[in-house]
Simulated scan of single mutants.
Amino acid sequence: MIRHLVLFKLNEGVSRDEPRVAAGAQAFQELGAKIAEVVSWECGWNVTDRPVAYDFAINSSVADGDALQRYLAHPAHQEAVGPWGEFATWVIADYEI
């Protein structure tokens, strides 16, 4: 099993209540149910205010490396993540559990 973690940081001057950001968050809320390879899916906005905190997180899992590659290449994933490049940066970690 592989855990796929993604942390998003909104760009300077971008707020989570902007329509494009709200649409991006909604797309991620719905994404886990659209891709068969996803075993578990959680995502949401950070609830703390600390300088090192990121703004939005995805915590998901897939069966193995092949499933991770299929998830990443899936059109629904590409569609959901695409707009985030306009208003955020992110870091990821994929590790075995």
Rank of each mutant, 00 (worst) to 15 (best):
S60L: 12
A53K: 02
I92D: 08
R70C: 02
F87Y: 15
A53P: 00
E96G: 01
V91M: 10
Y71L: 07
A93P: 01
S60P: 03
E96H: 04
S61V: 01
A53N: 15
D64E: 11
R70S: 12
I97L: 12
V52M: 11
D64M: 10
Y95H: 12
D66R: 09
A73R: 14
L68C: 08
G65P: 00
H74E: 04
A93T: 06
S60H: 06
I97N: 08
A63N: 02
D64Q: 10
A53Y: 01
A57P: 09
Y54I: 01
E79P: 01
A57L: 13
G85H: 15
P75Y: 06
Y95G: 04
A93C: 13
G85M: 11
I97A: 13
A93Q: 09
E79A: 15
L68W: 14
S60Q: 09
E86I: 03
I97Y: 11
F56S: 05
E86V: 06
N59R: 12
S60R: 05
E86M: 12
Y71N: 03
A80K: 02
E96K: 07
E86N: 15
E86Y: 08
F87M: 09
Y95Q: 07
Q69L: 12
P51I: 00
A80Y: 00
G82T: 12
A80G: 02
